[in-house]
Structure formats: structure tokens, C-alpha cells
Simulated scan of single mutants.
Amino acid sequence: MLWIGTDTCALGPYRSDLVETYWRWEQDPSLLVGYGRQGPESLEARTEGMGHQLRGENIRFTVYDLADGTPVPAGVTTLLPDRGVRTAEFVIMLAPEARGRGLGHGATRLTLDYAFHVTNLRMVWLKVLAPNAAGINAYAKAGFRRAGTLRQAGYWLGRVCDEIVMDAVASEFGGPSVVKSLFTP
């Protein structure tokens, strides 16, 4: 089941039957570096955590690659909402084989569209390690703007680095909306 999408990318439900796939993606060394996490996680721990995630308050999507016409799971996006102030932190994870083809931009854009037009959030923010130029560019292309720097807050390849804070606000979210197009005759 796909909820919203374009010709190349779609968002669907976060699925317990994909726990091993999500776990495999999370163990990729480049993802561990990008998140600043130092150690892998066991499949058993990941499976146990999946139940908590499915019951939680966060908004999670499986990202699907539609390039070949058949939906193929390619990543996960997550909104970690603060409902009291109608904001959320954004997190994305793409499978190693899905990177470099525009899926990150597409999935980020669709998640923001959902956040602003379905969940009615007023602002979404993220943190990205400063050396991650590809991530920063993809986020900017999807609608995020640089909001500030957390100095020496992260690690990149064993070295201390800054984290960049970026945000997107509903009032500035431009371009075509997939969600709005569903309600336009």
C-alpha cells in the first residue's frame, strides 16, 4: 500500500515484516558514520525495538523506489513530533543501493508535504553532520534552510565535527504538493 508518491518515489506504511531489511540498512558503515553512531545493533535488539516503534507517537514511512515500475523498499523517513508546539524532527535512512539517485530528495519532499498538509505541522527541523555535503544539498533542495550550527556536537570518521541544524516551515513550503493534488478536481 502506497500513501503518496511521484513517478519515482512513494511513501507507504512502516512495516514489521521489513524489520530485517531496515536492520540491514542500519548496519551499513556509511550510515553509521552519517548518524555519528559508533556501533552496530543486533537483529534481536532491532526486532525488539520494532514493536516499540510501531506503538509509538512518531510518524514513520517506508520509502519505495518506483523507478522500475514495481515498488521496492528503499528507506525510511521519520517525523518525531512535538505535538504541543506542532513541530517535528525529521530523520531519513536510505538503503546503500538507493543512494545517489534522487530518492533522498523525493522522500524528504514527500514527508514534508505530508507533515505540512496532513499532520498540520508548522515547522520541521533536522540535524546533519557538517561534512555530509550530499545530505545538506539534498535537504536544501527539498525545502530545508540552514538555521544554525551545534559546534563540535558530532563525529565524522573518528573526528569531532559540527552539526548543522536545518528547518523547513509550512508557510515557505513551495512547489507542487502531492497531497493537495489529491483534493484538487
Rank of each mutant, 00 (worst) to 15 (best):
residue 92 I to F: 11
residue 111 T to P: 11
residue 73 P to R: 02
residue 91 V to F: 00
residue 67 A to W: 01
residue 70 T to I: 07
residue 67 A to Y: 02
residue 94 L to M: 14
residue 84 G to C: 01
residue 74 A to F: 07
residue 114 Y to R: 02
residue 75 G to C: 06
residue 64 Y to T: 03
residue 84 G to I: 02
residue 117 H to R: 11
residue 69 G to F: 05
residue 97 E to N: 10
residue 106 G to E: 14
residue 98 A to T: 06
residue 111 T to A: 15
residue 71 P to A: 03
residue 65 D to C: 08
residue 99 R to I: 11
residue 95 A to R: 10
residue 116 F to S: 05
residue 114 Y to E: 02
residue 117 H to T: 03
residue 70 T to D: 12
residue 95 A to V: 09
residue 87 T to K: 13
residue 113 D to N: 05
residue 76 V to M: 14
residue 98 A to C: 07
residue 117 H to A: 03
residue 81 P to C: 09
residue 83 R to T: 09
residue 73 P to D: 04
residue 100 G to V: 06
residue 80 L to K: 10
residue 112 L to W: 05
residue 74 A to T: 09
residue 67 A to V: 02
residue 79 L to E: 11
residue 80 L to F: 13
residue 84 G to T: 07
residue 89 E to T: 11
residue 72 V to F: 01
residue 73 P to Q: 02
residue 83 R to C: 03
residue 108 T to A: 14
residue 108 T to S: 15
residue 90 F to I: 09
residue 102 G to Q: 05
residue 112 L to A: 06
residue 102 G to I: 03
residue 77 T to Q: 10
residue 80 L to A: 08
residue 87 T to E: 13
residue 100 G to L: 09
residue 100 G to P: 06
residue 93 M to S: 14
residue 79 L to P: 12
residue 86 R to E: 12
residue 82 D to M: 12
residue 63 V to G: 02
residue 73 P to C: 03
residue 74 A to G: 09
residue 105 H to N: 12
residue 91 V to G: 08
residue 104 G to C: 10
residue 103 L to A: 08
residue 89 E to A: 13
residue 106 G to Q: 13
residue 86 R to W: 03
residue 86 R to A: 15
residue 102 G to D: 08
residue 106 G to K: 08
residue 111 T to V: 11
residue 106 G to I: 09
residue 91 V to L: 00
residue 104 G to N: 10
residue 91 V to I: 00
residue 97 E to A: 15
residue 96 P to K: 09
residue 116 F to L: 04
residue 95 A to W: 12
residue 67 A to N: 02
residue 96 P to R: 07
residue 64 Y to F: 15
residue 82 D to C: 10
residue 68 D to P: 00
residue 100 G to Y: 13
residue 64 Y to E: 04
residue 97 E to S: 15
residue 80 L to D: 13
residue 64 Y to D: 03
residue 84 G to Q: 10
residue 99 R to D: 06
residue 114 Y to S: 05
residue 68 D to Y: 00
residue 69 G to T: 06
residue 114 Y to A: 14
residue 82 D to L: 14
residue 72 V to L: 13
residue 96 P to N: 11
residue 88 A to R: 03
residue 103 L to T: 10
residue 85 V to K: 14
residue 110 L to T: 01
residue 80 L to Q: 12
residue 111 T to W: 06
residue 112 L to Y: 04
residue 97 E to W: 14
